[in-house]
Every structure is written in C-alpha cells, then in structure tokens.
Simulated scan of single mutants.
Amino acid sequence: MTLWTKETITGDLRNLPAGVQEIRTPEGELCRLPLPESGGRGRSEEIRLCDWATMRLEWYEAEGFHSRHGAEPGFLELSFCLSGRMGWQLRDGSGLYLGPGGLAIRLRESCSDSRLQFPLGYYAGLAFSVDTRTLDAQLPVPLAQMGVTGAGLLERYCPGGRSLALAAQAGVAPLLEPLARLPREARPAWGLLRIQELLLLLGALEQPELSSPEGWPRDQLAAIQAVHARLVEDLSRRYTIEELSREHLLNTSALKAGFKAVYGQPVGAYMRELRMREAARLLRESDLPIAGVAAAVGYENQGKFTRAFKEAVGLLPTEYRRQNGPLRGKQFPGVPRQ
C-alpha cells in the first residue's frame, strides 16, 4: 500500500474475516488474532529495530477495539498518525485524540488495558515502543552528545503517567511519513535512524510546542458522540449549534472544541463533506431527481445544492450522474463513507 486513504485501507483488508487482525512478526511469520470487541479488520507489521526499540506499521477499518498488552514499566510508547483518527480512553475515563501528522506520547503501562477508538472508521499509523532503561544503558552517541536520555524523556513528557498528543505542527511528520512508503526490507535500517532522530527532536522541542489539549472528560466525550449521532442519523435535517448545545447540555464553545478534537474538523466543515459524499452516492446509485437528492442531504433549494456540489466535487450534479464514476474533483479524506 502506498496511499493510506480509507479506500486503499478498505481494499487491502477486504479479504480478512470480520473481527480479525493479521500480524506479521519480526521474523516474517503471519498470524491472525481476534480484534477484541470489534467487527472490524486490521493488519500490522512488527519490526525489531534494536535492543531498545521496536516499530509497528498498522492499519485498521473499525470503530475501535479493546487493547490489552503487557504493562512493562519504563517503556515509552510513541504513536504517529498517517491517516484517519485514533483516540484512547484513558484510565480516568477521559479521552485523547490523534489526527494526521500528530504524535501521541504515553507510558506503555498506562495503556495496557484500554479502549482504542477510530472516530472516522479507519486509521493508519506508525508506533514505536522504546525501552528507556535499555536505551540509557546503550545510549547512542548522537543522543549522548545532545544530553537526551530515556529517563529524561519520561520525566519531561509523562510525569505522573500523563499522556500527551503533539499536533502536526511539531515537525514530526517529515521524519516519519517516509517510513510508510519504504519497501519492507528497508524499514529496519531507516526505522532505527528515524527513532533516534525522533528522540533528538523530542529532547529539543521548546515548551510552547509541547502544549496540547488535555484528555476530554468522560461526560463531555459522551455528549460529543451523542451530538455526532444526532447529526448523521438524518442528513435531511439541519441543526444549529445552539440547538445541539441545549439538547446535550454543553455550552457552545465546549461543543465546537470537543467535536473538532474527536472528529478532526469543525461541525460545519464535517457535515458539508458528509452531505456531499452522500449526495454523490445518491447520484450514482439512485434515480432520485436532483431536487430529491438535494432534499435528502439537507438542501431545500436545488440551486444552492448545485453550487455546493460543484464547489466540492468539481462537477455539476447532472454531469456527475452522467459520468457515473468516482469523484473527479476534491477528495474527502477526513470523513468516512456512511
């Protein structure tokens, strides 16, 4: 796979049974394991980089699953999002979410029994596991020269077991994105180089760049997910932020900030893209008149719908229906097909 879109992930996983993940071990063996509490599918490739670091390339088409693994103390877990979104339900019930280009930093023991969530229905990413005690016993020369140690990184990023998500602007993406495009045989050598560079970068980041949203409280997360369910259950209906805020007992600022944290976009942008996806599907798969398609996705005025569709897709609805093919204009990587 070279493009980590929802469509390529779906195509790659199509032949796997529901509720199964396929794992390629560092020795090259393939095994299939259940995806706990999930009807989704997934694959991962595990790569041993050195005595103190392993790397994992993983991709899923799922709403989420329960993750259980060993709770080894002193292990630093670094998760980098290539596409989609991933969230963790933390020990206190709050949630932390990661979007494309972002990096999550946490202790392995803090996520040994946790619920992973994929708000958009898919995810692709890289994950590194760093044994900080072995790292410090075999500290590579570049890290030693810059005074970067595993113990220092734990103290800086995970005091008291804290989990942290760095936004894409932190500069991690240029280091890690190329790893996912390499041939499998090249990943161990390049992965070892990149994990050292990543640790150097984490040791050098200034404090303002470390700021990130804290985990969202359990009750707010439940309310945001209920808002999402209300929005997508009937695309012909439109709701104002004020209506949703009153219904779900959230102030408008918390609703807007929480929705963007979980689903990666403001409410308005997310719903526009979702409506255009559904409109494109109806134009391909139904014989509804254009006015009927417009009404089905929440446009009372056919002219407004036509303008919105042309702006989003690059074709008039009539042109798109005549071609009866995939989207030729703007793609929508952030919103799952319904």
Rank of each mutant, 00 (worst) to 15 (best):
T149P: 03
G152K: 09
L154I: 02
L154T: 08
R156C: 06
Y157H: 08
P159G: 13
G160V: 10
R162G: 00
S163D: 11
L166I: 03
L166T: 04
A167E: 15
A167T: 15
A168E: 14
Q169G: 14
A170T: 12
G171S: 06
G171V: 10
A173Q: 11
P174E: 06
L176Y: 10
L176P: 05
P178I: 12
R181Q: 14
P183E: 04
R184C: 01
E185F: 11
E185W: 02
R187Q: 12
R187T: 08
R187N: 03
R187D: 15
P188N: 05
A189K: 12
W190K: 13
L193S: 14
I195A: 00
E197N: 12
E197F: 00
L198V: 09
L198G: 06
L200H: 06
G203T: 06
G203E: 13
G203L: 10
A204Q: 13
L205K: 12
L205Q: 13
Q207F: 02
S211N: 08
S211M: 10
P213S: 02
E214I: 04
W216F: 12
W216K: 13
R218G: 03
D219Q: 12
D219Y: 11
L221G: 00
L221H: 00
A222H: 05
I224H: 01
Q225P: 03
Q225L: 14
Q225D: 14
Q225R: 15
V227D: 00
V227I: 04
R230K: 14
R230Q: 14
L231Q: 02
V232N: 04
D234I: 01
S236N: 07
R237L: 14
R238T: 10
R238Q: 11
Y239G: 05
Y239N: 02
L244Q: 06
S245V: 05
R246C: 06
H248L: 14
H248V: 09
H248A: 06
L249Q: 13
L249H: 15
L250T: 07
T252E: 15
L255P: 01
L255F: 07
K256C: 05
K256W: 02
A257K: 09
G258V: 12
A261T: 13
V262H: 02
V262S: 03
Y263W: 10
G264L: 08
Q265P: 02
P266G: 08
V267L: 15
M271Q: 11
E273N: 12
E273W: 03
R275L: 00
R277Y: 11
E278C: 03
A280R: 01
A280H: 10
R281Q: 14
R281D: 07
L283R: 13
R284K: 09
S286P: 07
D287K: 11
D287C: 05
L288F: 11
G292Q: 01
